[in-house]
Amino acid sequence: MTADRPDFFGALPPAHRDRLRTLAREVSFPAELRIFDEGGPADRFWVIRSGTVALDVYEPGRGAAVVETLGDGELLGWSWLFEPYHWHLGARTRAPVTAYEFDAEQVRGAIDADPAFGLAVTRCVAAVAIGRRLRAARLRLLDLYGAPGREPWTGAAGAAP
């Protein structure tokens, strides 16, 4: 068994999960496909069933710098939930991907029409996608594995001084 995965659907109460799934359609993407670009309209979102997607930021002279990868069960895209509904990052498949795809406007309509459903989905996006990724980003800001010019963690395998 897989240990109590914190995937997107798993974090939704069953009734709301079932309802959201009725709005999904199954899609598949080949490897190395650009799914969306930074600044583009966030008119869809996905829950990855299999495969890997890299989130990136375009940097002049460097190209698309990958900032995070997403895998099975994870939510791809949350900019669709908040105005101005534009992607903050770009996304490209690393390997072939299968996913549940959602029409953002349709889901936002369902959220507006049913506050209980809307609260459950919003909580889920906030906890699973935004909260978890924010914590991870903050940890990575610490550069825990050692940066030049600062005292890195050394472990008992290489302690200072």
Binding site: M1, A3, R5, A136, L139, R140, L144, Y145, W153
Partner: peptide, 28 residues
């Protein structure tokens, strides 16, 4: 993969009541 090591826990298959873990790295 790109991200924190805790994200990799999603890939590991284990039975929580019949598993043991060994960690070494920065304390955080």
């Amino acid at each position: 993969d790109v991200g924190v090591v805790t994200d990799l826990l999603d890939r590991a298959e284990f039975a929580p009541r019949n598993a043991a873990a060994f960690l070494c790295g920065p304390e955080v």
